[in-house]
C-alpha cells in the first residue's frame, strides 16, 4: 500500500496517568483521503483522534510516547505552536458546539482572533466557508440570527464551516453524527466525502455503516491496540483478522 501520509502516528503510546490507553499505534492518514477509526467503546479511538491536534494536552496527567507527524513534522516537539497546529488540524465534535453568537459571527470568530480586520474579506470568507459546509443556501437570509436557532444538523454544519474558515489542511471528526437525525447525518456524510478533494479527513464513528460509506481507509482498534488497518472495501468485505470480522459482523462489541 503506497500512500502519501498527511498525518501519521508512529509507535504511539498514550497514558492517562498510569493507565495505558493506546499501545504502539502506527496509522497513516493519507492525503486527500478519509480515514475512519472504528472499535468498541473504550478502544481508544477518540483518544487517538484527539492526539492528532493535541486535544489531550488539556487533560492533566496524560503522557504521549512515539511520534505524530504532520507533513513529516512531529507535532509534539516543543517548537510546535499548538494554536497554529489547531488551525491546520481542525476538529468537529460529537455534539454541535456553536458559540452563543450569530451565524455570521460563529464563522468570523476564528478570523477575527487571528487578527483579520478587513470586513469585506471576512464576509467573503464567511460565505465561502458556509458554502463549503453546504449550509449557505439555508442560512444566507438569516446570517445575523443566533446560531442556536439552527437545527442540530445545521449547527453541526456550522461548526464544520467554522473550522473550515481558518483554512485547515486536516479535519478531524469525533462522532460527528451521533447527536443528529438520519437526514442531517446523510448531509454531513455527503460533505465529508466531498471534503477529501481539499482536505485530509480522519473520522471516529460508532456507526460501522457510516465508516463503510464515507471512508477510504479504516482502522479497527480494540483495547488500545490497532487490530487491523486497510482499505475500507477490504475491511468490510474480507477482513484479515478474526477479531475485525467478529466486530463488524456484530458478533461482539
Amino acid at each position: 500500500m503506497e500512500l502519501k501520509a498527511k498525518m501519521e502516528s508512529k509507535h504511539l503510546n498514550f497514558y492517562y496517568g498510569n493507565k495505558m490507553a493506546l499501545k504502539d499505534i502506527s496509522i497513516v492518514a493519507p492525503a486527500n483521503k478519509v480515514t475512519a477509526l472504528i472499535g468498541p467503546s473504550g478502544c481508544g479511538k477518540s483518544t487517538f483522534i484527539r492526539t492528532l491536534n493535541r486535544m489531550n494536552d488539556i487533560i492533566a496527567g496524560t503522557k504521549v510516547e512515539g511520534e505524530i507527524l504532520l507533513d513529516g513534522v512531529n507535532i509534539n516537539s516543543p517548537k510546535m505552536d499548538v494554536v497554529e497546529l489547531r488551525t491546520q488540524v481542525g476538529m468537529v465534535f460529537q455534539k454541535p458546539n456553536p458559540f452563543p453568537k450569530s451565524i455570521f459571527d460563529n464563522i468570523a470568530y476564528g478570523l477575527r482572533i487571528a487578527g483579520m480586520k478587513d470586513r469585506k474579506k471576512i464576509a467573503e470568507i464567511v460565505e465561502k466557508s458556509l458554502k463549503k459546509a453546504a449550509l449557505w443556501d439555508e442560512v444566507k437570509d438569516r446570517l445575523h440570527e443566533n446560531a442556536f436557532a439552527l437545527s442540530g444538523g445545521q449547527q453541526q454544519r456550522l461548526c464544520i464551516g467554522r473550522s473550515l474558515a481558518v483554512d485547515p489542511e486536516v479535519m478531524l471528526f469525533d462522532e460527528p453524527c451521533s447527536a443528529i437525525d438520519p437526514i442531517a447525518t446523510a448531509k454531513i456524510e455527503d460533505l465529508i466525502q466531498k471534503m477529501r478533494e481539499n482536505y485530509t479527513v480522519v473520522i471516529v464513528t460508532h456507526n460501522m455503516q457510516q465508516a463503510a460509506r464515507v471512508s477510504d481507509y479504516t482502522a479497527f482498534l480494540m483495547l488500545g491496540e490497532l487490530i487491523e488497518y486497510g482499505e475500507t472495501t477490504k475491511i468490510f468485505t474480507n477482513p484479515k483478522n478474526k477479531l475485525t470480522e467478529d466486530y463488524i459482523t456484530g458478533r461482539f462489541g
Binding site: M208, Q209, A212, F236, T237, N238, P239, T244, E245, I248, T249, G250
Partner: peptide, 9 residues
Amino acid sequence: RQPMAVDLR
C-alpha cells in the same frame, strides 16, 4: 441487516 464481511459474502 446491512451485512458485512463473511455475512455479506
